[in-house]
């Protein structure tokens, strides 16, 4: 759509601007403020310059949390994206069963995040949970509060359970937009199933898949509630991801300076990914408009 230039449109955007400025800019300025100051209590603050940033960059604790976070995001992406595509390819194309699958698949997406944690906490318990009990019965030593591998496996399977449907739904939406003529042409060419996927379905899904990857990366990068409820960041620190560590630091220990410096670096990473996301989105819009 060709838009007209109209500066008065600013008045329509003004309410959003005021509201989001109130809930985004003021808090962010507070964070910036803390990140360059030190306090000895009594609300007295001293200029600390970039001290906190240097401290955080040298902090083993933050790097450990960051690597854990990246490992977690990489693992869940490596599982959820292929699995989501696979599920989307196998979904019914139309009719009652398509709606049926859509509704059941969407269900995990709409569950409050702490309830997702609670569900898996219960499901995985050796004494009362079906999963934990079964694993225990077949002789696997499974205890997500004590065992490093069990904790990671639980957190990952929980995320796959929670979010794979999102990837599948996006891929499904991409598949639905492929005209029938493409498949007919492929049939005439005697294309194999793999060739149809590789040369027709995958290119047509590329845009939505990019969105799916970015969304999953972003959201897994800020994951807090679910692992917090299930493992509480443990055993030890083994499932303490960035957000959990940050909340521990800011609200638990009230280390304002380091926490603020941490927040700002965290936010800059998010900003960078958002920019990639935005570029992908606007390119897709342009292509659709053409």
């Amino acid at each position: 759509m060709n838009k007209t230039v109209n500066q008065k449109a600013w008045f329509l955007v003004l309410p959003v601007l005021v509201l989001v400025a109130f809930s985004a800019i003021i808090p962010l300025m507070t964070v910036v403020n803390y990140s360059v100051q030190d306090s000895f209590g009594n609300n007295e603050f001293f200029w600390a310059g970039l001290e906190w940033f240097e401290e955080m960059l040298e902090s083993e604790r933050m790097w450990a949390a960051l690597w854990r976070q990246l490992a977690f995001s990489a693992i869940i992406l490596a599982i959820e994206i292929p699995l989501g595509i696979f599920v989307a390819l196998n979904m019914p194309k139309s009719g009652f069963w398509a709606s049926f699958c859509l509704v059941l698949m969407s269900l995990p997406l709409l569950i409050p995040w702490n309830v997702v944690g609670t569900i898996w906490q219960i499901f995985g318990r050796v004494d009362i949970g079906l999963l934990g009990y079964t694993l225990d019965a077949i002789g696997i030593d499974y205890n997500y509060t004590q065992n490093f591998y069990a904790a990671w496996a639980t957190v990952i399977v929980m995320d796959v359970w929670h979010w794979t449907s999102l990837v599948a739904l996006l891929a499904y939406a991409g598949l639905q937009s492929i005209p029938d003529a493409y498949y007919q042409a492929a049939k005439i060419d005697q294309a194999s199933r793999w060739a149809v996927f590789r040369y027709i379905e995958l290119p047509k899904m590329a845009g939505v898949l990019m969105i799916a990857i970015l969304l999953r990366f972003m959201d897994s990068f800020m994951i807090y509630t679910e692992p917090f409820v299930v493992t509480g960041g443990g055993p030890g620190n083994s499932t303490t991801f960035l957000s959990i560590d940050l909340v521990k630091m800011a609200l638990g220990q009230f280390d304002l300076g380091p926490a603020a410096a941490f927040s700002i670096m965290y936010f800059l990473v998010i900003l960078l990914i958002s920019w990639v996301f935005y570029t992908v989105m606007t390119n897709m819009d342009k292509r659709d408009g053409a």
Partner: peptide, 21 residues
């Protein structure tokens, strides 16, 4: 774009400043 960055902002970053605000 700025609006989008707010959708992507980690709540953990905002928890403490919100509490104070």
């Amino acid at each position: 774009f700025w609006l989008l960055t707010n959708r992507m902002a980690p709540p953990a970053v905002f928890a403490l400043p919100f509490f104070q605000l």
